[in-house]
Nucleic acid binder design. Structure first.
Lengths: 109, 109
DNA sequence: TACTGGTAGCTAGTAACACTAAGTAGTGAA
DNA sequence: TTCACTACTTAGTGTTACTAGCTACCAGTA
């Protein structure tokens, strides 16, 4: 992946995953393939799993273990109330940054 | 500053500074106050100076030392050709991320 | 003189995060 | 048995913004 993208994903990837989980519980492997489908073709699996561990430890998601038909048991993550609050804050932060950057791009001030 | 913002600035702050420098050479202290004026009220001075050292080492800017009327000499940074290329790539990366996120925000899987 | 405050730049050490690269396990098909 | 796919885990690395200091120059003031 490009170095720029790697750095830019810091702080946003968590929000992206939280957004993917809203009203749509999913497990790690699934999230990885979802991301790939969204165009994030080069996000490493290890990155996703590490992120999931983090948001679980922060208490942003609830976890349930479910057997899989074709492999080891899945850990299904669902956004909880705290996770929704965090996601709201993420969108606020994102909006701020996004607006500044769009202004800059237009050569604004 | 919020932790979210801190993380989100990784990878974008460099682009922001490069954008500020297009057609508008500036020195570190000035850039800091420019950023503050743009709403980035909590960006630490040390952060800006460290970033300037980095982009200079990467060869993205040209540097010129100029005396100041009221203090130590200024180091004036101006974007060079390589810096413009880097900035173009930055905008590409940003556009990609930005589009994905806006789609996610609209609930569009 | 001494002190303060604004201007201007620098640096060592830290925390957070995405990455690489490896591994373990379960299932089914060749 | 070997392979491929599914599914999760972990140790170590590089990059970046941060904190918290520091040096230095100048003007005004107590």
């Amino acid at each position: 992946m490009g170095k720029q993208m790697t750095e830019m994903l810091k702080g946003t990837l968590e929000g992206i995953v939280l957004a993917l989980l809203t009203g749509n519980p999913a497990y790690g492997y699934e999230i990885t393939t979802l991301l790939r489908g969204q165009g994030f073709t080069e996000i490493a699996e290890g990155t996703v799993y590490a992120l999931l561990v983090r948001i679980e430890q922060k208490g942003l998601v609830d976890v349930e273990k479910r057997p899989s038909e074709k492999g080891p048991p899945r850990k299904v993550y669902s956004l909880n109330e705290q996770g929704e609050t965090e996601l709201d804050e993420f969108w606020n932060t994102w909006s701020f940054l996004s607006e500044r950057l769009e202004q800059l791009r237009k050569g604004g001030k």
